[in-house]
């Protein structure tokens, strides 16, 4: 179904949606953008480049309370609030499609699934790629899996729906009919590129390349690359108790394969003792192991890890180096 909506009506539609949903949307944070639960729809910025943290901060929040316990009594926190993600980019939507593969098919993560089913995704096509993005190389610039898709066409957003949920959402006075099915030209806008041809084969050959040592010498082990990645989903679990020591909650928090003790086991052995092995693990998981399992790279080319790495470790540069480009 195709419609259009006047830009000035975005605030009004969000106000209306806020009656039934939590609305999560990009807002300005100093010089950058973040996803936030909206209180004032005027603050929403739809022509943003990228956010610091991806939408997983709501779908796989850190911390997430898994259970509450009080002596022997255990309760699982209920949250049935419906959420609309308003204005997420195709790369982030595609990242959610990838997370689905892990959280539905492989692990059946009820915490994720519940939030996912209670969510509606209104995507907005990206117009402001920054110097780090390379989604076009990863094929994730093509929006998929959305409920509603908005494309900037000047004074209006062109509106496409991708699901029943989406169709219901556009059934109101704010969305105008379009005469003919105008075909929208999606502008290419990434400046950065990554050549992913024969990716898997090349990575397999380069497992012992000296580049991993060089990157290990440089990496600060800060974990930022994985915390900001829309498809990194690793976590660790900890119990928080009050002073009675009988009452508290079990939380899960984001973890990262870049951190020193990620692969440390009881007894103290560390399966990835060297920093070079940790840097390599993240890249191999994204670009090879995930691909072998699901036939997709786990990288959507959002560029966040490149931007956030304090020492400039850049997946596009690493891949082009091991290719010998």
């Amino acid at each position: 179904m195709f419609r259009k909506i006047k830009k000035e009506n975005i605030v009004k539609i969000v106000e209306k949606l806020m009656k039934d949903y939590d609305v999560v949307a990009p807002v300005r944070n100093e010089k950058r953008f973040v996803f936030e639960k909206i209180k004032n729809p005027e603050k929403i910025v739809l022509d943003y480049d990228s956010t610091i943290l991806p939408p997983k901060k709501f779908l796989l929040p850190s911390p997430e309370i898994m259970i509450r316990f009080d002596n022997d009594k255990i309760t699982i926190p209920e949250n049935n609030k419906k959420t609309i993600f308003f204005g997420i980019h195709p790369c982030d939507m595609n990242a959610i499609n990838l997370l689905d593969k892990v959280e539905y098919d492989e692990y059946k993560d009820d915490y994720y699934i519940k939030k996912r089913e209670n969510s509606v995704f209104v995507c907005v096509d990206c117009t402001k790629a920054n110097e780090y993005c390379f989604c076009e190389s990863m094929g994730s610039d093509k929006p998929e899996g959305y409920d509603v898709l908005l494309t900037d066409i000047g004074d209006y957003y062109f509106v496409e729906t991708g699901s029943r949920k989406g169709e219901e959402l556009v059934e109101n006075g704010f969305f105008e009919n379009v005469d003919k099915n105008e075909k929208i030209e999606r502008k290419k806008n990434c400046k950065r590129k990554m050549n992913i041809e024969n990716f898997d084969k090349i990575l397999k050959q380069k497992f012992d390349d000296k580049i991993w040592e060089q990157l290990g010498d440089k990496c600060l082990g800060c974990g930022s690359c994985s915390f900001v990645c829309p498809t990194c989903y690793c976590y660790s679990v900890k119990d928080i108790v009050d002073l009675s020591l009988k009452k508290g909650e079990r939380r899960r928090v984001w973890d990262s394969c870049l951190l020193v003790d990620f692969a440390k086991v009881a007894g103290g052995h560390n399966f990835r003792e060297k920093r070079s092995a940790r840097v390599k693990q993240r890249m191999y998981h994204k670009e090879l192991y995930f691909f072998e399992k699901y036939n997709y790279s786990a990288c959507v080319g959002c560029g966040r890890c490149i931007r956030e790495c304090p020492v400039g470790i850049d997946v596009t540069d690493v891949i082009s180096k091991i290719r010998g480009d």
């Binding site: 943290l53 850190s62 600060l220 082990g221 800060c222 974990g223 930022s224 915390f227 900001v228 928090v253 984001w254 990262s256 951190l259 020193v260 003790d261 956030e308 304090p310």
Partner: peptide
């Protein structure tokens, strides 16, 4: 065993 950046990024 992790640095401040972890808390900061979250």
């Amino acid at each position: 065993s992790y640095p401040i950046c972890v808390e900061c990024k979250l």
